[in-house]
Design a protein around this nucleic acid. Structure first.
Length: 380
RNA sequence: GGGGCUGUGGGGUAGCUUGGUAUCCUACGGGCUUUGGGAGCCUGAGACCCCGGUUCAAAUCCGGGCAGCCCCCCCA
């Protein structure tokens, strides 16, 4: 395997392939296949995101259509102009018939959602409106694409909120930062930077943008999340208004958004990995304990291994017994699961069976210790 | 947006300059033997990115397309 520090780019490509995260051989530029192991990790990341968002209450998950009509995008607005060069268009349907109304694959969902907001928001009692979705968005990247970092089909979390005034929207911005802290804690990401982007670099249409940046090996900064204060910029263009308590008087809502993507996975890969491969935080590891039986003629290590595994499963951990028999020496399995980033390995050989103990090896420190049965499972 | 490079079995490669039989490693299937840090022997299957051009003949030369890689810059 490539050296992570001196040759990060190639190490990154190699580990994504070896660990079975994503297959970039799919014949469309920037659109890769999520492989089982990689998809599981991403789903666990999504679970962490949902937990962080849902636990605060008031925010609800939705799912909007993929297609946006040309009309929805025909608003004269810097937001629309900002994306016009990265939109995929659907122009035909049913054989070769040109569509009467051309449709875009969403590059982000403002235009989709804000076409519905005026129908949903009538009075102050409809506010705040706070929704999010985890869907794919599409951007016609012309530059060099890169697994999980710059792709054309993006696995995207986007939260959208509408508030009665700017102050309430600002409160939402502060809550986003709390949510972000909870997520980065669970992913064991190191302290990050929050940058207020200069005007030329803010999200198209936003009043201001705060970006969460992290630094990858090799020194490159990776923007892994952004929150945007829209103020009334969008509501004035999409006509999102409400009646206040006095009735009759219309006010524009103030809006915010929060965006994240599989760049979170890219950050976890890049920041935690080493020359042996991935190192996964336990919360997102598809396999948290790998039990490796070492075959023996004298004792039944496999049964013992399965017994250990079922006890750990009963405690709620994700456990797997590596009972593949085609790789006979255990060293292959050790290296294989270390490469995949499994946090804890449990080795079961003659010694463990006869002494009634297990031997644990931790991925993060690459040490090994022997323990009496089950003693540490709850704490690891 | 700019600069450079590459496409050969699943992965990594030799062959290309000088056109003619495609090399090796690894992974994979079958069989036997093995087993406390990437096992061994036997055997089997598997490839020249796509389209066009030059030529008796193209993996090799030329043009285009598609895909990928590296550096600078930037987006989630």
């Amino acid at each position: 395997m490539e050296n992570r520090k001196s040759n990060f780019s190639e190490w990154y490509n190699e580990i994504i392939d070896l660990a079975g995260l994503s297959d970039k051989r799919y014949p469309v530029k920037g659109m890769n296949v999520w492989l089982p192991y990689g998809l599981k990790i991403m789903q666990h990341i999504d679970t962490i995101i949902r937990r962080a968002v849902d636990s605060r209450g008031g925010m609800q998950e939705v799912s909007f259509p993929l297609l946006i009509t040309r009309d929805q995008l025909s608003v004269e607005f810097e937001h629309v102009a900002g994306f016009e060069n990265e939109v995929f268009w659907v122009t035909r349907g049913g054989g070769k018939q040109p569509l009467e109304v051309e449709m875009a694959l969403r590059p982000t969902s403002e235009a989709a959602m804000y076409s519905m907001f005026p129908l949903w928001i009538r009075s102050h009692s409809d506010l705040p409106l706070r929704i999010y979705q985890i869907v794919n968005v599409y951007r016609y990247e012309t530059k060099h694409t890169r697994s999980f970092i710059r792709i054309r089909e993006i696995h995207f979390f986007e939260a959208h909120t509408a508030h009665r005034d700017y102050e309430d929207a600002e409160r939402q911005m502060r809550e986003y930062i709390d949510i972000w802290n909870e997520i980065t804690d669970a992913l064991c990401l190191p302290p990050y930077r929050i940058d207020r982007r200069p005007d030329w670099d803010k999200f198209p249409g936003a009043m201001y943008t705060l970006a969460f940046d992290t630094v990858m090996p090799g020194g490159r900064t990776l923007q892994i999340g952004t929150i945007h204060q829209y103020g009334e910029n969008f509501s004035r263009n999409y006509g999102i208004v409400y009646d206040d308590e006095r009735g009759g008087e219309h006010h524009y809502v103030s809006q915010t958004t929060f965006g994240m993507s599989e760049r979170l996975l890219a950050a976890v890969i890049g920041i935690h990995g080493d020359d042996q491969g991935l190192i996964l935080p336990p919360d997102i590891a598809p396999v948290q304990f790998i039990v490796v039986p070492i075959p023996s003629d004298r004792v039944d290590t496999l049964s013992f291994a399965r017994d250990v595994a079922s006890r750990a499963s009963a405690l709620g951990y994700r456990v797997r017994v590596d009972d593949r028999d085609n790789y006979t020496p255990p060293g292959y399995k050790y290296n294989d699961w270390e490469m995949r980033g499994v946090p804890v390995r449990i080795e079961i050989g003659e010694r463990e069976v006869s002494e009634g103990k297990v031997t644990l090896a931790l991925r993060s420190i690459r040490g090994r210790r022997s323990f009496p049965p089950w003693a540490r499972c709850r704490r690891t």
